[in-house]
Amino acid sequence: MEKTNWVANYTARSDFILVGIFNESKHPALLCLVIFVAFLMALTGNTILILLIHSDAYLHTPMYFFISQLSLMDIMYISVTVPKMLMDQVMGMNKISTTECGIQMFLYVTLAGSEFFLLASMAYDRYVAICHPLRYPVLMNPRVFLLLASGCWFLGSVDGFLFTPITMTFPFCRSREIHHFFCEVPAVLKLSCSDTSIYEIFMYLCCVLMLLIPVTVISGSYYFILITIHRMNSAEGQKKAFATCSSHMTVVILFYGAAIYTYMLPKSYHTPEKDMMVSVFYTILTPVLNPLIYSLRNKDVMGALKKMWNVEPVFHKT
């Protein structure tokens, strides 16, 4: 009997409790329904976008290949956190084991890191297409863009393998309540009873580096793109270039802005409520918005969608 109680107590101590966002809501059932609808929209929108790009030969270009990779990341991104959160709310449970917490953290960090670099690769692709159109087939041949995409996934996984083991090996002898709806690194670190200041500085420097490299690539790419657009004599060419780049810049601002808040701003700017709201924004809303941004504002994608439904496309590539 004593042994059974000891095992039960040990198991309880080895589990984390995800406080989540529903405890803060006055209408948790309605919020749960809204998040479920957003989850379905993200899965549907990104899946349709992937299928369109895969099935339409007209979209077999580096730009759309990167967009399909972004959609794949978004599907995985939202699937890492939302199903667990919704199931906990429906089942009335809010526990997560140490192993599950580590797996969730690893997948989340890996996907976030991969997306950082993928957005930079997409900016470089637009730079080559607009600033060096004649050399584009050579500079962005299949080997190059496949290598870029593979590099994004690899660097993201390095990020996951770096932060997850270190974070999960800290002793957690304080409250096991994570004031978040998933196992995000900063939220889990708050539960450690050991000194994490050196690790937090290391993590901060790594995040700065991981953000600085893509931001430098994106800023440099768009600097030359703007110069090239300014020199264009064709108003139609300028409009098309702006339309292509504005979609990407919208996604960059949404994703990077939330990441900078979460990982780079001092602790004085953070509260559990703010952190959860920002995480909801880039974990749930961004995967919903991305396919809309890249489809509704894109003539080629809308044309492919019309063809999928056996409707003569209105837009044609010139």
Rank of each mutant, 00 (worst) to 15 (best):
Y256Q: 11
I227K: 15
E312W: 07
N5Y: 14
F161N: 06
F154W: 14
Y10Q: 13
T47W: 07
L31P: 04
L226R: 12
F182D: 03
H179S: 05
S194L: 09
E273T: 15
T61C: 15
K3H: 15
A112L: 09
V278Y: 07
A42E: 05
M203I: 10
A149Q: 11
M249H: 01
H132K: 10
T250R: 00
I96K: 03
E312H: 13
L59V: 11
K84I: 10
S192H: 10
S25Q: 03
D88L: 05
T271A: 11
P137H: 05
Y223K: 08
F16L: 06
C173F: 15
G160C: 08
I213E: 02
F66T: 00
N23W: 09
H179Q: 13
G303I: 02
L119S: 01
M168H: 07
N141W: 08
I178G: 00
R176F: 07
L212G: 09
T283K: 14
G151H: 10
A38E: 12
L191H: 08
A304V: 12
M87W: 13
H54I: 01
P171R: 03
P137G: 04
V314W: 12
S68T: 02
S157G: 08
M73R: 12
C131I: 07
F181M: 03
G156F: 02
Y108D: 13
S247Q: 11
S79P: 01
S279L: 01
G92A: 04
S71I: 02
L254T: 05
I198C: 10
M168Q: 04
T196E: 11
F315Y: 09
T4H: 12
Y204M: 11
P137S: 05
L111Y: 03
T196N: 08
P266F: 08
S221W: 00
F145W: 09
L147I: 04
F36V: 10
L285K: 07
D300T: 14
N233V: 01
A259I: 09
L134S: 11
V90L: 08
M232D: 02
S279G: 01
